[in-house]
Amino acid sequence: MSVTKEFKEFAMRGNVVDLAVGIVIGAAFGKIVTSFVEDILMPPLGLLVGGVDFKDLKLMLRQGVMGADGKLTDVTLNYGNFIQSLVDFIIIAIAIFMVVKLMNTLKRKKAASPDIPPAPTKEEVLLTEIRDAIRTKPM
């Protein structure tokens, strides 16, 4: 088997394609949640806690360190960005939890409802009647 044919066979398996679709959708969902947190959720939250922009929250560790490019830069601990990332994570984790919970509920419902066997055909009903009639007759 050639490498090209083997790779094509591998790539066309259902699991690989499903995984690729999941990664693409997950990345897009992550961008949407990040935008939601940065642009919609955090500004009003910042206003509620005293007009703070969370991106500006930082702890100064050292002031004016000379960088490789010759510019003075501050060494800061940007905990505001961390708070935003934490809110991103919590929202994504809750969304994934809800999707997994929904999938598990659907699987349980499907497993709980056993398949109903099909109704017997006319021939089967007739054969059952003949069998029962033969059993009841004394020999």
Rank of each mutant, 00 (worst) to 15 (best):
D115M: 06
R131E: 12
L61W: 06
K101M: 11
K71V: 00
F89M: 11
P118H: 09
D69C: 05
L47F: 14
G51E: 08
L45W: 06
A28I: 12
Q84H: 01
M12E: 15
T4R: 13
V3C: 02
S35T: 13
G50M: 11
D69R: 06
P114F: 02
T4S: 13
V87Y: 00
V75Y: 08
I96G: 06
P114M: 03
L77H: 01
A93K: 13
P118F: 07
L126P: 01
P114D: 02
V21M: 11
M98S: 07
K5E: 12
G22C: 11
T73M: 08
T128G: 10
R135H: 07
P114Y: 02
V65Y: 10
V100G: 02
N81A: 05
F89W: 09
L41H: 04
K8E: 05
M12N: 15
G80E: 07
F82R: 04
K107T: 10
Y79R: 09
T128M: 10
M1L: 02
L59Q: 03
M42R: 04
V37E: 00
E123T: 15
E38W: 03
V65W: 12
V65A: 11
A112V: 00
T76F: 00
V21D: 07
A27S: 06
N104G: 07
V100R: 12
T4Y: 08
K110L: 14
D56P: 08
V52E: 01
A93S: 14
A112M: 05
M139S: 08
A119D: 15
M103A: 15
G67W: 02
R108A: 13
I40F: 14
D53Y: 02
Q84N: 05
V33N: 05
V24L: 15
L41Q: 03
T73C: 01
L45E: 02
D39M: 04
I23F: 09
V16E: 13
Q84Y: 01
